[in-house]
Nucleic acid binder design. Structure first.
Lengths: 259, 259
DNA sequence: TCAAAAGTGTTGGAAATACACCCATGT
DNA sequence: ACATGGGTGTATTTCCAACACTTTTGA
């Protein structure tokens, strides 16, 4: 399922000559589990600060492709829903001291840390991704931790990564009508409450469950199943599924899917 | 009014050591004149291809600030409405041959063209801007032309600049409710038809003038004036103005201004 | 037995849409 | 006189928000 091909030391020893200078990529990866939205964060053991899974761009690589590659290297997942949402370009957003600390804690061999490319300024291209929670294998390995964090309990992160998450949520909120967030985050079969919780989390407010259900069903993209589940809540709830064909077709049109 | 501090030779001879590598900025600058939307383009005399006004980012400069600086250097305008909308990061978007041609047509002194920074790959941060048409002084100067182009008559542009314009319009269209496009593009006093034409151009379809007016007035952000003008159309038309105070206040809220 | 979650409506008002008629003006 | 664009109003429909009652089931 998961292909872990990420290694901290490799990462920081990558020859600068292969990388596009000044440009980095950070991913806000959303998952849904047990009724809450979660964000995937990683942490270098020797550093201790959680951060967004990110990386750099090869000179002969599209930035979008770099984002897919980074996502795959951390989650093992291919073909996830991934969307660029903002460039973070403040000149003082990279905390040089913080990066220096990281470098000093790794044996970099012959390289002189004081001129390492990692100490230069980077702009960061922000991407948000929706992945199926259960397919991501979290781990505590050699140099790195990878963990889901509840969206309301994100710790203080490296650099401006808290702001990047904030901006991602604002962007998703303002474009929710064109973003297949439920389709990408939920399993094949789901209860309407699960879908509603996703929206409530993004908007940070309660939604009327009856009006919400009516609106969702009125799109015609969701099928009611002859099945119920007691997994969530007290009473057993009807399950629904997305009509994949209609969904794929609607995605290509200019019309909003939901709002 | 206008401060022309842009010079092609200076531009391409800027020391690479002062610039952030790999990152450029391109601006889609909109203006409204005589009932049509226009986009400001520039052209290097020795090159012959129109392009979006763009530039690079200094190492100690925020990307947003670079965009403001570039806009001011071309239009002389300060404090315009400027918004980042997308990063263009395909690895083959920079046409190296085209750039080589440009370099060869300038006397670059002692620098060796084959290793000039201008021949490297750049990602480009796209910004759109709304400016008051009449305040921009177009010119045909030493090495450069600066001209307004009708939005439906944009020529084949340098690199992927046609696609950048296309993406800018799609972005504006999808976020029109939160973009004060009329406020920024129209003069103090304007006819409702002028405002409507802006929306019709962005949406590329006719809107019902009566319903449009009702909707715009229902926001409470537009005042009807006791004045008419025959400038547009056959019959003299009522003039309107934006209620600046309410507008500034509404901008800060999360609610949509128009849609 | 009662609180919590789910199933199933109704209803009033707001907003969007479609459309009609008259007026002023330049050709 | 008529085509063009502007001013004003109405009818219809669609959408959205607010709200009520019942059922199931775990604690």
């Amino acid at each position: 399922m998961k292909t872990k091909d990420f290694d901290t030391r490799d990462f920081l020893q990558t020859g600068v000559e292969d990388l596009l200078p000044s440009v980095s990529v950070d991913c806000v990866i959303f998952g849904f589990h047990e009724g809450t939205l979660k964000i995937l964060l990683n942490k270098f053991k020797f550093h201790g600060t959680w951060m967004l899974p990110g990386g750099f761009v090869y000179k002969k690589e599209d930035v979008d492709d770099a984002a897919y590659r980074i996502l795959k290297s951390r989650t093992g997942l291919d073909k996830v829903y991934l969307e660029q949402f903002h460039l973070f370009g403040n000149h003082n957003r990279t905390n040089i001291q913080e990066n220096e600390k990281i470098l000093n804690q790794i044996d970099m061999g012959s390289e002189k840390p004081e001129h390492h490319w990692f100490l230069n300024r980077f702009v960061s291209v922000g991407y948000y991704a929706f992945v199926e929670y259960s397919k991501v294998e979290v781990y505590t390995a050699d140099g790195e931790d990878l963990r889901w964090h509840h969206i309301d309990e994100i710790p203080q992160l490296y650099s401006d990564h808290n702001k990047i998450i904030e901006k991602a949520i604002l962007t998703i909120r303002s474009q929710i009508g064109n973003i297949p967030i439920g389709y990408e985050l939920l399993p094949e079969k789901f209860a309407m409450t699960e879908l509603r919780i996703i929206y409530e989390t993004i908007f940070n407010k309660k939604l009327d469950r009856r009006n919400f259900q009516r609106k969702m069903l009125s799109t015609g993209l969701i099928n009611k199943l002859d099945e119920t589940s007691k997994k969530w809540g007290i009473k057993s709830a009807t399950l629904f599924s997305f009509n994949k064909e209609k969904y794929e077709h609607a995605k290509d049109s200019e019309n909003a899917l939901f709002d």
